[in-house]
Design a protein around this nucleic acid. Structure first.
Lengths: 137, 137
DNA sequence: CGGAATCCAGCGCGATACTG
DNA sequence: CAGTATCGCGCTGGATTCCG
């Protein structure tokens, strides 16, 4: 685990080279790198959800941001939006197969995060302690 | 592949619940979700680099953002900064073991991205075509 | 070369109010 | 319930200038 491979695959090769503005990574990060997308995806990983269910589950999200977030995820084909023309309108959201695939990757990121959370926190404290000058964030 | 597991692990469980502001994911995303960190990590995955080498390799990055980015990555213990007190100052950056671990995850994201890039693009075009009204981005 | 400091534009996102 | 519309602030990040 220590001597992990530093090899880079084709997906990363042309990254940032002069001819390529960036590698494909930015596409994913622009989608899941924002404040809420991942939380929506994670919540939907547990099953179908309605709008208010999502909003209640994802603590702190405004209805505006939830609207925008699910809209973008739908546009990218990561989830499906289903409208039932009932009396009070009812809309459900569900991950597509593509979205579920992303869930798998997100899970790995979450695992990695939890694994290193403590060590990273200690690194930060140590850094801030040794560099009292630049209080970067 | 269709009936992919929707199971969520411990890392994702308490995500966004009322008692937990978020799951650990935000920590990683706050680091790699920004505009440049991933590109720096990817470039360093190929080996040790100097400041200007990074700047030239990562097309479009300003020296300000490169400084801030490597600073934060260093603070999190994802890379090491080495200063050689030569005549014109010389500084090199190198991934730590922890940083290399992240590289592995980033690689998977990049692979996933390339794999679905085409399909996602088509999804977007279709969506925009069917919803000429809201031109969300 | 490798930064630090300053100024400034964009827009991400929150708060609030209104609609079908 | 599930949105849409408007306003405004804060933070990210770009451009420029100066320093050791």
């Amino acid at each position: 685990m220590l001597g992990s491979h530093t090899g880079v695959t084709a997906a990363l090769e042309p990254c940032g080279s002069t001819d390529h503005p960036d590698c494909g990574i930015r596409d994913v990060l622009d989608r899941i790198g924002d404040k809420w997308s991942v939380l929506v995806i994670v919540e939907l990983a547990s099953g179908v959800r309605r709008f208010r269910e999502l909003q209640r589950a994802i603590d702190g999200i405004s209805q505006r941001m939830l609207t925008l977030t699910v809209r973008r995820l739908e546009r990218d084909g990561l989830l499906t939006r289903t409208v039932y023309p009932t009396v009070p309108a009812q809309v459900t959201y569900e991950l597509t197969a593509r979205g579920s695939g992303l869930t798998h990757l997100v899970k790995q990121l979450a695992d990695w995060s939890l694994e290193h959370k403590g060590a990273i926190g200690r690194s930060r404290d140590l850094y801030d302690e040794q560099n009292p000058d630049h209080a970067i964030r």
